[in-house]
Amino acid sequence: MSTQRFKVKALSWAPYIEPVSVETASEEQLAAMQVTPSNTKVSPYVRTLAHDPESYVARTKLFNAIMYAKGGLDRAERELGALVASAVNRCVYCASVHARRYIELSGRSDVVEAIYLKGLDGPFEPRVQAIVDFCRSLSETPSRVTKDQAQALLDQGMSKAEIVDLIHAAAIFGWANRLMHTLGHSTPVETK
């Protein structure tokens, strides 16, 4: 039997509007675009959002805090929350990025395979199921998330502080998906 691991393809992203050009950017836009960790090459996504540098800078700081803050919820499970939100919102680009990060951090290509091939219904093992159900409700219609869904996370040993981290991870992808999926589209990675 082959035990080939499920792989998610890397994608590129192209905006529907003309992004800011580094050559003609304002000082504020240039300063904003340097917020990213590697600033040698500014991605089309960053240059698109740099049309409004104030909101871009504020959101980037919040995003990094939520996804990378030390302590609290395991980073892999934050990525799973991001993946579930992206699956609900059909943000193919975000899903591919965060599916791959989740696999890198957790090794759980089986969970990603199930989500990609069968969707969010499961069944998954109890802890994954609890995360998927909670983040799915929150992403679909926030007012429909239930106490039982939060209780299921506690029952799986997640602390309240960790659940607060999970809420933020799913919520910040309610934000990111609403940019990435509406302002542009994923494209295959260009190979030379």
Partner: peptide, 8 residues
């Protein structure tokens, strides 16, 4: 985003 944080 805010709505989801509050609901959660």
């Amino acid at each position: 985003f805010e709505a989801r944080v509050i609901a959660g």
